[in-house]
């Protein structure tokens, strides 16, 4: 299999990483490098890591998810892991990898809501952020 790249999409102040292929070790390491670079470059406030396309997981990948979350967190961009399939969740738990400290959500939509809520909470008192809150509230 040729080495593909996992696309990293910028959505406003967040980055969306959607893994739609089986992730081999090399691909995962590349993703880690590229994602941290993109976080720094774009100043993203959060990362959505969509793993709904992932059907199998091993301990390496399990740890990789944790490390990505930890890396982006210390770079001030919270990672929300979304779309984990039941089989993957069961496997991770059986391996004892409960990913402490990793924020999760059911799907991209809910993950996005969660990220918005969290960045809003952390940015409280910030004029620009309260304005955007006001804007979305007014828009509804």
């Amino acid at each position: 299999m040729s080495v593909e790249r996992i696309p990293i999409l910028k959505m406003g102040e967040f980055l969306l990483v959607s893994i739609q292929t089986e992730l081999d070790d090399r691909l995962a390491v590349n993703l880690q490098k590229e994602l941290t670079a993109r976080v720094a470059e774009t100043g993203a406030r959060g990362v959505l890591l969509d793993i709904s396309g992932l059907d199998i997981v091993d301990s390496f990948l399990g740890r990789m998810i944790s490390t990505i979350a930890e890396m982006t967190r210390i770079m001030d961009a919270e990672t929300v892991v979304v779309g984990m399939k039941p089989a993957i969740a069961i496997t991770l738990v059986e391996m004892g990898l409960t990913l402490p400290g990793v924020v999760t959500a059911l799907n991209v939509e809910k993950g996005m809501e969660l990220l918005r809520a969290r960045t809003r909470a952390s940015g409280e008192g910030d004029g620009i952020h309260s304005l955007s809150t006001y804007h979305t509230a007014g828009h509804q």
């Binding site: 892991v81 979304v82 039941p86 969740a89 738990v93 999760t104």
Partner: peptide
């Protein structure tokens, strides 16, 4: 406990 941890991993 595992059930709850797995649910949490899925975002519930």
């Amino acid at each position: 406990m595992k059930t709850m941890e797995a649910a949490k991993l899925m975002g519930a």
